[in-house]
Design a protein around this nucleic acid. Sequence first.
DNA 1: GAATGTATACGACAAATGTCGAATATGTCA
DNA 2: TGACATATTCGACATTTGTCGTATACATTC
Lengths: 148, 148
Amino acid sequence: MPKPRAINPEINAVELTEAEWEIMKVVWEKEPCAAGTVQETLAKSRDRAYSTVKTTMDRMADKGFLEIERIRNLQLFKSCISEVDARRGEFRRMLKRAFDGALTPMMQFLIEHEGLSKEEASQLRMLVEKQNTGGARKEKAKNESSNR
Amino acid sequence: MPKPRAINPEINAVELTEAEWEIMKVVWEKEPCAAGTVQETLAKSRDRAYSTVKTTMDRMADKGFLEIERIRNLQLFKSCISEVDARRGEFRRMLKRAFDGALTPMMQFLIEHEGLSKEEASQLRMLVEKQNTGGARKEKAKNESSNR
DNA sequence: GAATGTATACGACAAATGTCGAATATGTCA
DNA sequence: TGACATATTCGACATTTGTCGTATACATTC
């Protein structure tokens, strides 16, 4: 029986807060973009003052999540971390906290407690099948990995 | 093709902080137990003052995560949320933030970017198989679900 | 009942996060 | 060159989280 391998949670530990996630999603979609653009986009779902968004984005630049390109009076923000990096960070934190870093118990939990339906389980099996019959995993992983 | 169902992230949204997770793990294992017991247990991996642990546990009681039973001068803490509830909360927050609440993209991500090995994928498939051939899922889910 | 040890109560403080307003700077246009 | 709109800067403040120290209260034991 194969021993469950724990994914090392220390490497590439990008951790975004709630507000940072919301902002990053807009930046990934529209970069390079101004703080005003982000604020207006977010306003559709949740209204916040421009200064709120700008302050958070400045702090994100300090942390190395965003970088600023200056054009005259304007600042254009670009992401310094990929969505894959952010997802990895979020996933690993969850796995570490709630499942001691082990994948198998998490899968078990999903099936037993999250009401994974037969359809969903089938999808999942198809994904696993694709993986096992050797798809373009390596290549894809390479292309979409960290851009940090 | 089945449409990916988003797990509703609002229901049962138990969210624990890092310190709270560490404490809860000890409480689940040893409840009912005193704050001193928790502090001593945690001290093995990470030393913190008794008052630090006690303050955090009092706050957790305020939040409804723990309850206190008083015996003369002593306080015994018991959990008000199950480990399943806590895991569910942690998992759903991750899923909502990083994958818009959808399971399938998360699975895809796991396979493409987390280097899910063939062995792990096999384990996963076995879990899925067990699920599809009708195990004791319903019963188990019932027994281990929320005790809130 | 005084000394000693253990628990509790509670105030404090720093850092991180989410939030904003107001002052200042810059650009555009009639 | 003003007037007006837009961006940036930056200080401020409330909450939450993690962290303690210290003053009190309670029990046990000479």
